[in-house]
Amino acid sequence: MRIGDFKETYAADEAVFRSTTSRFWLGVLFVLLLIFPFIASDYLLYMANLTGIAIVAAIGLNILTGAAGQISLGHAGFVGIGAYTSAVLTNHLGLPFLICLPLAGLMSAFFGILVGAPSMRMKGLYLCITTLAAQVIFEFIFVHWESVTGGIRGLNVPPPSIFGLKIDGEFGFYWLVLPVIILTATAARNLFRTRVGRAFIAIRDRDISAELMGINLFRYKLYAFASSSFIAGMAGCLWVSHLKTITPEHFPLHESIRYLAMIIVGGLGNILGSIFGAIFMTLIPEVLQTALKFFEQFKPEAMAYLYPLQTVVFGLLIVVFLVFEPHGLAEIWCRIKNYFRLWPFKH
């Protein structure tokens, strides 16, 4: 309950976590995240790490598609570029993780600006097709530039090292992903507290009046492409450090679409939405599989029909979400918060 919560300065009113209650629960969440790796099994940690990488990538896509309104079908391609950059830098130059991470981001951002350049003349579906073309071109390069990418056999990389320390295994990797998530989420949230993020949303909502308000459309669309693909590149670096192997098959078009699904299910233009969406899209298939395994004990003969069914159930869940909660999981969260804000009173 937060009643009688008055602000005396504009700074307090503009804070992201405005009330003591929300700061308290944020602290609780942080402590839980710190305890989690010590009590979780290796399988749970593996899932947490996968989810973490997806969260970073989804935050990136949400800046470009959710906030700035430029639909991208090439996000997996940008993640791939970051992953390959990081793999090559580690293999050939032996660079440590902390240097690979920003370099992978910068390389992706460079290609993001290239792909975003047609946005000067195109918008909406036409720009979307440009990003689709980029995705196809990136995949082609991953497969055919064998001297660098290793072709369809891909590359193997050593485990990441940080300050000379080799990070091997899920437990160690968890401590790499968590700070990157916190940093990306904070940076992305900050973006939307300033004129840059406001300009992104203005371009999405009404680009003509945005221009008349003094926003240079082309420059800010490029900013959106650059920041989104920079984060995608970092997600790629995390990806390759986690799996320690990389092939073109890891970054197909349907992976791009999965990222889109994450931000739509989670909530467009909402950082929290990216997090919820990434968790949903990564964990629900696993939950469904676990549920099936549980049923298998009782009726093993039905499994031949039930196994294909999990994809159907997963798809159905997404459709149901979009019908009943078009603003995504973040909106549900918002309602729950509003309910407890005045709890136990109704108004």
Partner: peptide
């Protein structure tokens, strides 16, 4: 801009004389 609050809409008007760049914003 329908996706924003009243305050953010007004702030957006000030866009062209504000200085914050991409990095400073992040």
């Amino acid at each position: 801009f329908r996706g924003m609050t009243v305050l953010d809409n007004i702030k957006l008007g000030a866009h062209s004389y504000l200085q914050t760049g991409l990095l400073a914003a992040a």
